[in-house]
Design a binder for these strands. Structure first.
Lengths: 337, 337
DNA sequence: TTATATTTTGCAAACGTTCCCGAAACGGAG
DNA sequence: CTCCGTTTCGGGAACGTTTGCAAAATATAA
């Protein structure tokens, strides 16, 4: 049998209420008794019963991390797994723990996230994976009364914060980098059109292009799917329709890598024949061949910040928007003219 | 106020005990009352209070996933993040949930894992990350009385199962593949000597070498550190001391990639000048340039199996060892003679 | 019909906390 | 020494379940 507060009370000749107060540092207990309680608690190896605490407090110190199941295959947005440990560590500092939920984007039914929260009385949630625009989960989140932090989105309510990289800026930086290195015929392989991030990255792309008064043909812009094989298909289509192209911006690293390895087989070399820049800054970028230029998202910073934002909400703060600036990793995949 | 079992009882003119039994499908309640209880529960939107359940049952339906914090940087063993969703999904089927703990391998103090389990009354743990041999956590695990599944290790007790790929076989397969393609001067860049997996992969390497009666010089075997930059350093050292070498087996993909990208800068091409095979089968392998031959570990299978093993233990089963066979991904990084 | 066996239900304790409220102890002022 | 204000403490309800045991209801057998 585990030792409880009652055992301590017995050994100290105190009531359970006093012991509880002593243990929790509440005001109103003599410091002498507090220390003796602490001592006995330690002697007996007391471990508080969290279930009991949760029962009376109706709170759980548990926060949910919502993963889009389609990320499970490691194809889409592997970057998210890189920030998990950082979320976790930050929460742990305040004695919160993360509990993982994978939800299937396609079979999602209204209220699912509410049920998840209610069942375990979660203190809050971090929605970590990207869902397509207008996905019903966003409706649920908007009407929810629990602290939520949504990544890579712009949902903002009294009790819902969001954090994301400045995707427009990211798209701009990548394109600008190509332009600054003398490229004029530039292609863009984006993700699906119904993802917010795709549109924002596109916006940045356009901004840089217009700024430089370049002409980009419609066939130089492809809406793909963020997967490696998508990148492969797109690059060939792109080259075929735009033989003069000298550089391509891929809206994520995976597509870029798929394209590069596929081109190598056809004898097209990067960056000699064509320059490539990706997006995400996966840690393998720097070990890629050639090291892949990429817009790097600071996952550690996002993870930490997301956890902090959630804790703020839990402690009564109100929703806010945080943008983190992406950085450029130059790699060696862009040729300088 | 949330609706409780009591509200249902009131509305049904029943006692809470009957309602509880009806809800839990226990024997001894008339099917008519059961259906009416179910109906009312649904009407009222009843959600069971898990804290209360846990309090009386002294069990939690929560299982801990123990991550070695040093994996957090994404450098060491990124493969582990690939199996997280699979563990999670399998557990979810049985209404168990995973809660993530990162523990710092270096500052670990005896009993830490015990505390983790006790605090939340975890039903069990999956220790997912590799710790060095003789790490104190293994002592704790051996003396623990809770269900545990350890990955990539061979700790086995009444209540502790382990699951791992056949590393000896993996090392053998990789080496054999090089030999079968006509390579005779083969190098091996391994991980640190105080990791079980390093030694097992080495054993497989040796086995294949001896079987083929090849002579390998001592300088062709390097004990590195499983990181990209480690791979880079090792390959240069290796080539310098063994100019005639035609193929290198890296004990993980990260080192292999670090080596390949670094060699490219020196004009050494893979597989034309030197052949490379890695280990882990990271999903980026197939998009690497060139697609990287690798011993692929089936993370999905391991994740699912690990969860199943744990559930077995929780349900009273006893510890067992499961080995899964690695597969070979041929890629295009090994030249055939 | 009565007696008995079986099924179905209710009562109440228990799980380990927190917290409100009142009682006891203590301190200082008069 | 008395009185009153503080500080410290204890009693007990409450949180929402499960479960052993007894009571009630129902079915079965004679």
């Amino acid at each position: 049998m585990r030792v409880s507060i009652k055992d301590i009370a017995l050994k100290c000749n105190l009531s359970v209420s006093t012991v509880s107060r002593a243990l929790n540092g509440d005001y109103g207990v003599k410091s002498a008794t507090r220390t003796s309680v602490m001592k006995v608690a330690k002697e007996l190896g007391y471990v508080p019963n969290i279930a009991a605490k949760e029962l009376v407090s109706q709170k759980s110190k548990l926060i949910g991390i919502i993963l889009n199941e389609s990320d499970g295959d490691g194809e889409a947005r592997p970057a998210f797994f890189e920030l998990l440990p950082h979320i976790n560590k930050t929460l742990a500092i305040f004695n919160y723990r993360a509990i993982i939920y994978t939800i299937n984007s396609n079979s999602y039914i209204r209220g699912e996230i509410t049920d998840i929260i209610n069942l375990r009385n979660l203190s809050g949630c971090i929605v970590v994976s990207v869902f397509r625009e207008n996905h019903p989960i966003y409706e649920d989140i908007k009407s929810l009364n629990n602290p939520i932090v949504v990544l890579e989105s712009s949902i903002l309510t009294r009790i819902c914060s969001n954090i994301n990289t400045d995707e427009v800026m990211g798209g701009y930086m990548a394109t600008r980098y190509l332009i600054d290195n003398g490229h004029k015929q530039i292609g863009f392989v984006n993700g699906p059109q119904n993802f917010e991030i795709s549109n924002e990255r596109f916006e940045g792309f356009q901004k840089a292009i217009e700024e430089s008064q370049l002409q980009i043909s419609d066939t130089a812009i492809i809406w793909s799917n963020y997967t490696g094989s998508g990148g492969k298909d797109s690059i060939h289509q792109l080259i075929q329709n735009n033989p003069a192209i000298t550089a391509v911006f891929f809206a994520n690293d995976l597509m870029a890598m798929g394209a590069i390895s596929s081109m190598a087989e056809s004898g097209i070399l990067v960056p000699k024949d064509i320059s490539i820049i990706g997006y995400d800054g996966l840690f393998v970028c720097k070990y890629y061949n050639p090291p892949l230029a990429s817009v790097v998202i600071d996952n550690a910073a996002i993870g930490v910040r997301a956890a902090e934002l959630l804790l703020e909400l839990i402690n009564g703060g109100s929703g806010k928007t945080v943008r983190v600036m992406p950085k450029l990793f130059e790699g060696k995949s862009v040729r300088k003219y």
